[in-house]
Computed example of a mutant assay.
Amino acid sequence: MIKALLTDFFNEIEKKEIKKNKNAQATFWVEELQEVTPADKNYISIRKATRLYNKYIEDREQVIVKEPNKYLLDFMAQYLGYSSFEEYLTKKELTTENNEKKTTIIPKKIEKQSFLKKHKNTVVIGVSLLSTLLLFSLVKSNTNNSETCIIWKETHFEKSTCSLKKSVDNSLYKIDIENFKKIEVTKETPFFKNGKPQIWYGKSSKRKMEYFTQRGVHPETLKELDPITEYIINKYVFTEKADKTILN
């Protein structure tokens, strides 16, 4: 049931926090949800959180990672609204049993009567899929012609033809290129406005922390940027103890 718990846990982070990929979800777990420090034996790193995702969610058998201990199992269960992992197991098993009882067997007579109907539905589905593929081809062709692609220029994106090697199809990411800029941040940077983040961050291909003025993806890695948090500011921007004050 560890796989089921991890699946429900990561799905809940995606639903509540709108974190679309495993890296963003693992980072949120470690940097936002985690209640213990690196000195605590129950501390989990972003690397381990990602490995748990790889092994249990993506079913990568070659990934070597230690199973979550009781503290982590209880922690994930509590995030899902249960008092402990034991309660999660009990209610999960009851749900599974109830679903199995509701399963009905279709009589053979009914199966014979619905034989033609099943084939009819298959034909309809096939036609629908073909129509969808044709529509997708037309849309993609029009998209390329209307130049929805963008390309990175040092600190900002510019509109580009989709034929260029490093161009990015912005119809997938919906980046506001007029306001999306890479900037250098200092302790005077207005990180928040009315409690809402004004800066987004992500790491470059060389693992350097970089900052941007809008939501979007990192221009090098194309990984989704995360909104700035007090933890990130204190860790990467306010490097002196006297600087541990966020300016809104």
Score class of each variant (00 low, 15 high):
M1V: 03
I2N: 04
I2C: 03
K3E: 15
A4C: 03
T7H: 12
D8K: 09
F9A: 05
F10S: 02
N11C: 10
E12Q: 15
I13Q: 02
K15V: 04
K19D: 02
K20H: 08
K20V: 05
N21E: 13
K22I: 03
Q25M: 08
F28A: 02
V30P: 01
Q34F: 04
T37M: 09
D40M: 02
D40S: 10
K41D: 01
N42G: 00
Y43V: 01
I46G: 01
R47V: 06
A49I: 01
R51A: 08
L52P: 00
Y56A: 05
Q62P: 00
I64N: 11
I64E: 13
V65Y: 01
E67K: 14
N69V: 00
K70R: 14
K70G: 05
F75A: 05
F75W: 08
A77D: 04
Y79W: 08
G81F: 06
S83I: 01
S83P: 00
E86M: 01
E86Y: 01
K92V: 03
K92D: 07
E93C: 05
L94A: 10
T95L: 15
E97T: 10
N98K: 14
N99A: 14
N99S: 11
E100D: 13
K101T: 05
I105S: 12
I110D: 08
E111D: 10
Q113M: 12
L116D: 10
K117H: 11
K118D: 09
K120V: 05
T122S: 12
I125T: 10
G126P: 01
S128P: 00
L129V: 12
L130M: 12
S131V: 06
T132D: 13
T132V: 07
L134W: 09
L135Y: 10
F136Y: 10
L138G: 09
E147T: 02
I150M: 11
I150R: 05
W152P: 00
E154G: 03
E154S: 14
E154C: 05
T155R: 15
T155P: 02
H156K: 15
F157V: 04
F157K: 02
E158Y: 07
E158I: 14
K159C: 07
S160T: 03
T161V: 09
C162K: 06
L164Y: 13
S167K: 09
S167V: 06
V168M: 13
N170V: 03
S171N: 09
Y173I: 04
Y173F: 11
K174N: 14
K174M: 10
I177G: 06
I177K: 06
E178G: 08
E178F: 11
K181C: 04
K182A: 14
K182R: 15
E184Y: 07
T186K: 08
K187V: 10
T189A: 08
K193E: 14
I199H: 03
W200M: 07
Y201G: 03
G202L: 06
K203E: 13
S205P: 00
K206D: 13
K208H: 09
Y211S: 03
Q214Y: 04
Q214S: 09
R215P: 00
G216K: 03
G216V: 04
K223G: 05
P227S: 15
P227M: 12
P227Y: 11
I228N: 07
I233D: 04
V237N: 06
E240K: 15
K241R: 14
K241S: 13
A242R: 11
D243G: 08
D243C: 06
K244G: 03
I246P: 00
